[in-house]
Design a protein around this nucleic acid. Structure first.
Lengths: 218, 218
DNA sequence: TTATTATTTTTGGCAAACCAAAAAGATAAT
DNA sequence: ATTATCTTTTTGGTTTGCCAAAAATAATAA
């Protein structure tokens, strides 16, 4: 099995199994990898033989510890590159993912070490996702999208994922700028719009807007 | 045909056809690419269909203008990366080639543009090889091979044409590194070996070695 | 529970990139 | 010019990663 294929499977299994159940179905993998389920069946069998996953027929697939270790190293490479592209080369947050999808497959430990060093060993990438360290350890992030926030909690605005001028102008108007402290008052049941306090003023924002604001839990 | 395979063929044809005849044999390609000649026959037929080369049975292969354009763009990517790895990340000149072999296949014009910009649009890589510009134009140099140098003249080491790690290590040992000033003392009549002074030490090198060192006349 | 739907697996097939061995063609040596 | 040698091409075969269609299994709904 080609190393790039293995890496893409492991990475995808990793992403699908964090958050939800640690067992991933063939259908889920097929959808993410843009192949048909039959192809996945073949692949996970091979990965099982390589002891990178545990695959149980008609049940699902989960990473072994060595598969998990490998997945974390790919995620590390991906996020280090994303950070590097953004910080050192001035790429926008929306451009870095696609390029990092290719760069992540270059296996050269020294290269990643040098990149990380130059960046001052960052723990989070430009999207706020945590970067696993050399040993695969992940620093837990307290950055979330405002759309995932809970009522009666306080947050600090850390960034946006939509850089359009109109969106930034909108935020400016409501003082929802980087560093602003906000307090979440209510989430409407029927449309998930959010009512919050920002600089002693009440602001109501749509779920679409909340999706594009990154906040830190205080 | 996979784009990475195409790129490796085009690049290799390009390297083999500059300097010598512009027509490259299957054997030459097979040796460089570590495949058997039969594999090359198949590949060049396909490249011919793609109009990237002109392949004539039992004669050889040469690049078309579109194949040449593509080859130059790959060479550009390779040499930009080599320069970047050396200058920005502090890799040694003997390490950069191997890593660039992988990085060169990432096709993203903006990425190469940004790297080149950050380096101040260099015209030569750490080995002294010229970097084609965006249009494929190569800055011509008046560099010569050390094997063509004359006695009692001074030269500056500008590059090499053999990028093997063992060769670069050999040069490193004798301080025959980029920028080194050498003074040619004598050329042996019977075997054309060269005696030179480099950093106040006498060094004797074989014609084979001299063939792979590029120098500038001072 | 039985029918319907969704998922998974099996089977047979395809294209890419390679190899080994044999046949054909070109080159060089005597 | 006629071997001998080297290079090229052909032929048949492999592996990898994929797909399509059908069969088997599991999950869901009536």
């Amino acid at each position: 099995m080609q190393s790039e294929t293995i890496e893409n499977y492991l990475k995808t299994i990793y992403h699908l199994s964090t958050g939800n159940s640690s067992v991933v179905s063939n259908k889920q993998l097929a959808d993410k990898l843009n192949v048909i389920p039959a192809t996945v069946t073949e692949a996970v069998k091979k990965l099982h033989e390589l002891k990178l996953v545990v695959y149980e027929k008609s049940y699902g697939t989960r990473l072994t510890s060595s598969g998990s270790k490998m997945a974390l190293s790919i995620v590390r490479r991906h996020r280090i590159w994303e950070t590097y592209l953004a910080k050192e080369l001035g790429f926008g947050w929306d451009e870095v993912h696609q390029i990092a999808e290719e760069l992540e497959h270059i296996k050269n430990d020294k290269l990643i070490k040098k990149l990380s060093e130059k960046l001052g060993h960052p723990n989070f990438d430009p999207h706020g996702d945590p970067i696993p360290d050399e040993k695969g350890k992940i620093q837990k992030s307290n950055f979330i999208k405002l759309s995932e926030a809970k009522t009666k909690s306080n947050y600090k605005v850390m960034g946006v994922t939509d850089h359009s001028t109109s969106f930034l102008k909108y935020l400016e108007k409501h003082r929802l700028i980087i560093g602003a402290i906000i307090s979440l008052k209510n989430i409407e049941e029927f449309d998930h719009s959010i009512l919050l306090m920002c600089e002693k003023k009440e602001v109501s924002i749509s779920p679409k807007v909340a999706e594009s604001i990154i906040v830190e839990t205080l």
